[in-house]
């Protein structure tokens, strides 16, 4: 059985105009969100996106936008308490992941 998370929440966006079809997004994505078709990337599994940001960082023409961050309840609570972005650094001894 496959593990699927919430639908219609991922902030991933691809600007097909800018895309040069290099395929780096296909290479780095751990959830097979992209495929290359007719020398352009397309998003085929947007709901599988975990917003890690790997595609955005490795797109040489900045065609990908995504709000990346930790998909972690404790991290979000930490950020909420401290008034910062969600962070893995649970306590002063280091991170939880």
């Amino acid at each position: 059985m496959s593990l699927k998370y919430l639908q219609n929440v991922a902030t991933l966006e691809l600007d097909t105009e800018k895309c040069v079809g290099c395929g780096m997004c296909v290479t780095v994505c751990p959830h097979a969100v992209f495929v290359i078709e007719d020398k352009k990337a397309i998003i085929v599994e947007k709901d599988a996106c975990m917003e890690c940001g790997a595609c955005r960082e490795n797109c040489p023409v900045s065609a990908i936008a995504v709000r990346s961050g930790v998909g972690c309840a404790s991290g979000i609570i930490n950020g909420f308490i401290r008034g910062t972005d969600p962070t893995c650094d649970c306590d002063k001894n280091g991170g939880c992941c």
């Binding site: 593990l3 699927k4 998370y5 919430l6 929440v9 991922a10 902030t11 751990p30 959830h31 599988a48 996106c49 975990m50 917003e51 709000r67 990346s68 961050g69 930790v70 998909g71 972690c72 309840a73 404790s74 991290g75 979000i76 969600p86 893995c88 939880c96 992941c97």
Partner: peptide, 20 residues
């Protein structure tokens, strides 16, 4: 189990915020 989102390999920030 909600805390396990941080350990899992497929949850997104937007998704976890939505459910929380």
């Amino acid at each position: 189990v909600m805390n396990f989102t941080g350990t899992s390999t497929y949850t997104s920030l937007s998704g976890v915020m939505r459910e929380m």
